[in-house]
Structures are given as structure tokens and as C-alpha cells.
Simulated assay, not measured.
Amino acid sequence: MSNLLLELAKPESGILRPETLEQITIVSGKMVACDPLISHNHPFERTIQSGKYPVVAWWHKEEERIAAAELKLSDTRPIRWEMAVRPGQNVNELKDGSIFGYPVDTGLGCFGDVEAIDKLDEMEARLQRDLGDDFISLYDNLIEDVLSERDDNWGSVIVCEDTGLNVVMFSSGYGDGFYASYWGFDADDNVVCLVTDFNVLS
């Protein structure tokens, strides 16, 4: 278990501080964690119930950067962790020290329902069509403004007004890299959270 997951399971040391960012709307139950500007719309194998859940950033107190992002499904503390995998991935086939995760090339990670990630891609195509020569990129024409409202640390993009579907984005630790996510389980073996570890606590 990584140092970060140990801290989240028993946070008495006070290295991290939580900040609730935004509620995220889940309709399909199929969760995606990815760099939102790359938009890998490949959901995890495990599904969750539809609903609204808080997204929590875990800040490293001394370095003032986001060490982890958590999709909080319950107030119960996790006592066991499993690496989140996509269909076809098997953690038993990983070499020691290897992980399944997602690449970050823009300094951002996110959580979103797979339908929200799909709509984010649709928004980019629509902006490109509507703005024509004024279109630069999804980041320059939309996401930059959303993040600037929160000191470039995080933001929530509404991708469907009717359903409230949104993608919650956050800065990814030291920036670009390759990051794993983990399901947290309580004493009754219920899933209580999904956490992406940005490798700030090595």
C-alpha cells in the first residue's frame, strides 16, 4: 500500500488536509479517471450507483499541492484498497512496482461519468465548429476560464444542463505523469471511495 493510501486510511499524522471541491453527477455508474484534455473515455470495470457524490482534494499541507483526489461514496473510512482496473486488466499480471493508471500530459486529472467524458469530447467538437478560426483548443476556449475561478487548482465543467452531468478537474500533484486510482473498502467490504494517487507521498 502506498504512503498516501495509508494516510487516507489513518489520517492522524495530519500531513494531508481535505477540501471538498464539488458534487459530481453520476448517471451510468461507469466511472472514468483521466486527463480531461486527452479524454480517455474508458471506464473502470467496477461500477457505482447513480447519484451525486462529493469530490475531495487531499492537499499536502507543506507543499500546498493536491496529493490525491477522492470520489467520496460514503462517510465510512476505508480499511482496504484495490487498484481500479478497466476491462481486460489484471493486477495479478503486473510486475512488481508497476501500476494500471492514466497518463497526464496537461497537469490535470479528473473524475467523470463515462457519459460526461463523451459529452466533453462533443463540446470540443461543437466549439471548434461554432468558433471556426477563433477556436484554439478546449483548454484555451473553455477550461482555462473555469480553472481560473479556483486559482487554477480545480474546476467543474457542466457538460449537460438537463441532467447536471459534469466533469470535476483538478491539478495533478507535481504535474504530468502516470497515476493509478484505487477503490477503498470498509470493514463490511462495501466500496466507500475512489482515489487517484498523484505520487506526492512516495
Rank of each mutant, 00 (worst) to 15 (best):
G132H: 10
V85E: 05
D186G: 07
W58Q: 06
W183D: 03
E144C: 13
S39F: 01
D75W: 08
T163H: 02
R77C: 07
F111K: 11
F44C: 10
A125P: 01
N141H: 06
K119F: 07
K95V: 01
G184C: 06
G173Q: 03
L16H: 00
P103S: 15
L37D: 02
K61Y: 05
G109Y: 10
A180F: 01
E70M: 08
R129C: 05
E45Q: 14
F44H: 05
N3Q: 07
G175E: 03
L94F: 09
V56N: 12
S50F: 04
L131T: 03
P43H: 03
E12G: 03
K119R: 12
I136G: 13
V191K: 08
L16F: 02
C110Y: 02
L4M: 12
M123N: 03
E124T: 00
A125M: 09
S2G: 09
L37A: 02
V168Y: 06
P78H: 09
I24A: 08
R126L: 12
E22L: 02
D130Q: 15
T20S: 13
R65Y: 09
K61H: 09
F185D: 05
Y182E: 11
L71H: 13
D162L: 14
G175R: 03
N141W: 01
L37C: 01
F170D: 06
T76K: 15
V55L: 09
V114R: 07
N90I: 04
M83Y: 11
E45D: 13
F178G: 10
L108N: 05
S172H: 06
Y102I: 12
C160V: 07
H60L: 04
P103W: 04
G155E: 04
D140V: 01
S98D: 15
I15N: 09
D96Q: 13
E19G: 04
I99K: 12
K61I: 08
V168E: 03
